[in-house]
Amino acid sequence: MASELKSTISNAVKDAMRAKAKDRLGVLRMVMAEFKRIEVDERIELDDARVLAVLDKMVKQRRDSAKQYEEAGREELAATEHAEIAVISDFLPQALTAEEIAQIVNDAIASTGAAGMGDMGKVMGVVKPQVQGRADMGEVSKLVKAAFA
C-alpha cells in the first residue's frame, strides 16, 4: 500500500519548486532521497507508519546536531538544523501533550499487566506505535521508567 504521507511530501516538493523556496525544497528533497534509499536498500514500498518513523528519526538527528552546534557556539549551523526541523515537522502529526503521553503509558502498563522494569520492553512495544512521530521517544521512555519507580 502506497504511503499517502509520502505522496503529500512529493507534492510539497513540486509546490516548493514552483514557489522557488530553495531552502524548503532542499530539505524536502533530502527527505525524499532518504525514502528512496530505504526503498531501494530494503526492496519495499514505504507505508505511512514507516514514513512517520523515518521523519521522526530525521527530526531527532537534527535536534541532536543542533544541540551539539549550540554547545560548540556554532549558532548559524544550529539555526540551519532548526529550520530543517521546522520543515520536516510540517508533515508530522500534532504533538501529544504530556498528559496524553502519560495516559497512553498508564493504559499500556495496565493492558500489559507490567509489574516492573523487566516489563519495560512490553510496555514500549504497545506505546511506540501510538506516539510515533508525535512525541520524543526519549521522553516517553523516561515516563515509563518513572511509572515503574
Score class of each variant (00 low, 15 high):
residue 1 M to I: 10
residue 2 A to K: 09
residue 5 L to S: 10
residue 6 K to D: 05
residue 7 S to F: 15
residue 9 I to R: 01
residue 10 S to Y: 07
residue 11 N to H: 08
residue 12 A to L: 11
residue 15 D to V: 05
residue 15 D to C: 00
residue 22 K to L: 12
residue 23 D to M: 13
residue 23 D to T: 15
residue 24 R to Q: 12
residue 25 L to H: 01
residue 25 L to E: 10
residue 28 L to S: 03
residue 28 L to C: 03
residue 28 L to G: 06
residue 28 L to P: 02
residue 29 R to K: 15
residue 36 K to P: 06
residue 36 K to I: 12
residue 40 V to E: 14
residue 41 D to S: 13
residue 42 E to F: 04
residue 42 E to I: 02
residue 43 R to N: 13
residue 44 I to H: 08
residue 45 E to W: 00
residue 46 L to R: 02
residue 48 D to P: 00
residue 49 A to Y: 06
residue 49 A to T: 10
residue 51 V to W: 10
residue 52 L to V: 03
residue 55 L to D: 09
residue 55 L to A: 07
residue 60 K to V: 03
residue 61 Q to N: 14
residue 67 K to Q: 12
residue 68 Q to R: 11
residue 68 Q to K: 12
residue 70 E to V: 09
residue 71 E to R: 04
residue 72 A to Q: 09
residue 73 G to T: 02
residue 73 G to K: 01
residue 73 G to R: 02
residue 74 R to W: 05
residue 74 R to T: 04
residue 76 E to N: 07
residue 78 A to N: 06
residue 78 A to W: 07
residue 79 A to I: 04
residue 79 A to G: 06
residue 79 A to Y: 05
residue 82 H to R: 15
residue 82 H to P: 00
residue 83 A to C: 03
residue 84 E to I: 00
residue 84 E to K: 07
residue 84 E to N: 10
residue 84 E to D: 12
residue 85 I to W: 01
residue 86 A to G: 11
residue 89 S to G: 11
residue 90 D to K: 09
residue 95 A to Y: 00
residue 96 L to Q: 05
residue 101 I to N: 03
residue 103 Q to M: 05
residue 103 Q to G: 11
residue 108 A to F: 02
residue 109 I to E: 07
residue 110 A to Q: 12
residue 110 A to K: 12
residue 110 A to Y: 01
residue 111 S to D: 15
residue 112 T to V: 11
residue 114 A to C: 14
residue 114 A to T: 11
residue 118 G to S: 13
residue 120 M to Y: 04
residue 121 G to Q: 14
residue 122 K to Q: 14
residue 123 V to M: 07
residue 123 V to T: 09
residue 125 G to R: 05
residue 125 G to D: 10
residue 126 V to A: 08
residue 127 V to L: 09
residue 128 K to T: 15
residue 129 P to R: 09
residue 131 V to S: 11
residue 131 V to C: 13
residue 131 V to N: 11
residue 134 R to T: 13
residue 135 A to K: 02
residue 137 M to W: 01
residue 138 G to H: 04
residue 140 V to C: 01
residue 140 V to P: 00
residue 142 K to R: 13
residue 143 L to N: 02
residue 143 L to C: 01
residue 146 A to D: 14
residue 147 A to W: 02
residue 148 F to I: 02
residue 148 F to P: 01
